[in-house]
């Protein structure tokens, strides 16, 4: 085996150690449990395979994921567009920064009842909740990223008369991309939370809705299995995000590594 391959295996083993230990602890600690609220993990595992079959995935998991991705996409588009504008204008920043700080300080879940008032209780409401909570980290990070573009690089672009769309695409967006990605990662975490919460309020399907239904009908192993599924979805999304980041920010990590060596 080559050095690089052993390294990958070693890192994978290290990363998996703690999860394996925790699951094993849970498994053996609850093995003989008779508590109604803490069923044996074995029961939860059985419930998991029975509950999350193809039908339920189509009926509950998929709608949740569609709402999440739609809301996130809207938040990222609005946040990046707004961030480009605000980051490029000192006047806009001076006017908008105080109200933005206030809006961002409002915990997004309290927006659910407010948004329900005018967006109803359909998918539109849930997407609106997710988008309105996720837009802030993207927006504020993009503003910072655009403000932080190296002045020498700006002058270079100016002296070569790089104009309009090309300037936005090649200079501003790329220079701000590390911050934009950091904002998007925060938005992803907030988005998952808001997805579940918005489905707990008023919904007829979705993961949040299903978990509350299980809890209300005392199907405790099923409820736990839903919580585990949410956790797994979170891990999968963050892995997916890492893949995207590696592609988009390959240059950034290379640059940082080169600067550290110098």
């Amino acid at each position: 085996m080559t050095g690089a391959a052993t390294d990958v295996v070693r890192r994978a083993l290290l990363a998996l150690t703690l999860p394996v230990v925790l699951v094993a602890t849970w498994w053996f600690a609850t093995a003989g449990s008779t508590s109604f609220y803490w069923p044996p993990l074995a029961d939860i595992a059985t419930a998991f395979t029975e509950t999350w079959t193809g039908e339920r995935i189509a009926a509950d998991v998929l709608p949740s994921l569609v709402r999440l991705t739609t809301g996130l996409a809207i938040a990222i588009v609005l946040g990046v567009a707004g961030g480009l504008l605000i980051g490029s204008s000192r006047v806009l920043r001076a006017v908008l920064e105080p109200p933005m700080e206030l809006l961002r300080a409002i915990p997004p879940p309290v927006l659910v009842p407010v948004i329900m008032l005018f967006a109803g209780i359909g998918d539109g409401m849930k997407v609106a909740v997710i988008a309105s909570g996720c837009v802030w980290p993207v927006l504020l990070n993009t503003v910072e990223g655009v403000r932080g573009v190296d002045p020498v690089l700006r002058e270079t672009a100016r002296s070569y008369r790089l104009g309009g769309a090309r300037r936005v695409r090649v200079l501003l967006l790329r220079a701000a991309s590390p911050q934009i990605m950091a904002g998007a990662r925060q938005a992803l975490a907030i988005g998952v939370i808001l997805m579940v919460i918005s489905e707990m309020f008023a919904a007829t399907n979705g993961l949040g809705f299903t978990i509350v239904q299980f809890q209300r009908s005392f199907a405790i192993p099923q409820m736990w299995s839903g919580v585990i599924l949410l956790g797994l979805i979170g891990v999968a999304l963050s892995l997916l995000f890492k893949l995207v980041e590696r592609r988009v920010l390959g240059w950034y990590h290379g640059l940082r590594a080169a600067q550290r060596k110098a």
Binding site: V152, L153, E155, L162, G163, R166, R174, W251, Y252
Partner: peptide, 30 residues
């Protein structure tokens, strides 16, 4: 239009997300 500037801070005047060829080609696109 007819002027090109070479700055002192070479490390900061090249676009780090573009390859060497892309850096040279970029101003020609406009």
């Amino acid at each position: 239009e007819g002027m090109a500037v070479v700055f002192q801070e070479y490390g900061r005047s090249l676009f780090p997300w573009l390859t060497v060829s892309q850096n040279v080609e970029l101003p020609l696109k406009d």
